[in-house]
Amino acid sequence: MILNKNILLILWVIISPAFMAQNLSLRVISMNMKEGGKPANFDANAYSDFIRQYNPDVVVFQEMDNFTTRNGNKDLLTEMAVKLGMFPYYGKAFTYASGDIGNAILSKYPFYNARTIATKPTGASEMRACSWIDLMMPDKRKVRVAVTHLDVSSDEQVRVSMLATINTNILTNNELPTLLIGDFNATPDSDTMNYAKFKWQDIGEGTGNTISSTNPTKRIDYVMGYPKTWIRKSYEIVCNPGLSDHCFIVADVEHL
């Protein structure tokens, strides 16, 4: 009888952490800023007000200007970070209009690691970047969140080549659950997305179209997960023509 109790106790010690483990839970937003925020006249308040109502953990941006002549020579990302109480990371793709254009990330919690890679495969129209941050949530679980904006070229191989470079850089020696979010400039049945799905889980599979924001007819913005064990809790496509030509994605995702 005592032996049985001991066995039960040992079993409990072994399996209880599995029951007690909380899922990693994140609310992410993806926003293509359309020429650095031109639809809203580069107004940080307009974008911040939109973001604030969702209280996200991480927001990723494509087409974010940094001190360009067209945005009035300002750092729109850091201005939003100040207004929202978040931590900013800017990733440059290329020099543009006396400043920079690229991807950007806002995080509710500080990140302990951040990288940007830029690539221009043969046939690409311009340099494109992928940026990512590693952050530790208050429960001490770590996660990697990446943003990219693949080339708009008609040649699918350009985007496939970019994805291959991204995979090598993001996934090699990476043990963190990872999200790759952004504008892939490719529809779900394209060679690009078929290639992406070798490694990544299309967390928003079967959800709505993301462009244009006035009449969405194509799905080209994605939240992809690695490894393929992410859980979609909610996934909302929000179209606001006053802010962008793309609809935004607001997603609640979990990973065990």
């Binding site: 940094n66 990371y89 800017y90 990733g91 440059k92 920079d100 990140f111 302990y112 690691n113 951040a114 990288r115 940007t116 890679i117 590693d134 530790m136 001490k140 770590k142």
Partner: peptide
């Protein structure tokens, strides 16, 4: 602009 912000986090 920083391409590499390198860090390590060992909780506690």
């Amino acid at each position: 602009i920083i391409n590499v912000f390198e860090g390590a986090a060992i909780p506690d």
